[in-house]
Amino acid sequence: MNRDDALVRRIRAGDSAALDELIACYYPRILRFCYWHVANRNDAEDATQDTFLKLILHLDSYEQRGKFSSFLYKIASNVCVDYFRRSRPEPANPEAARNSPDIDKIESNDSFAWRLRNLPEEQKSVVILRFAGELKIREIAEVMDIPIRTAQSRLRAALRRLKLEYLNEDRSEK
């Protein structure tokens, strides 16, 4: 039994320390995932919190087979779809960026962030799960409920697109 499954077992038995440990471990990753799928940071934090709440409510449906992260990301993905539908995405522009706590990073990579955020949804999900969630391709395929090959080809297509734009940016800066 892996660490995640051991924590889940303890949580099912009512161990709140195990719950805190799980949240501490996964909160940053889920926040990163939600950040790129909703309109703004506030929504991302709310969506992250909702994800963990829904996890508690439906923990019974998780069958402990070492696939906890996929299960959690599936919940996060559904939550983000709700949030996205409820609010329109704010375009990344200098005015909005100045109000964000991550202003330095965003300003220096403004166009790159914008391009990442504006990838086709299915490509963006794969990239975020790969680089923010640090999931393997097999896990990404499980979360998105697609064949492994489809996940691979979407990731390749997304990276090709970003690489081209990233290299062009690089050249123009130089």
């Binding site: 909702d50 829904k54 409510l57 439906h58 449906s61 299960f71 599936k74 919940i75 559904n78």
Partner: peptide
């Protein structure tokens, strides 16, 4: 098809419960 924001296929037996 989702219940409480989660796909019923993800919920599985928990949904049938």
């Amino acid at each position: 098809i989702r219940y409480d924001g989660i796909d019923i296929s993800t919920l599985g037996s928990a949904y049938r419960n």
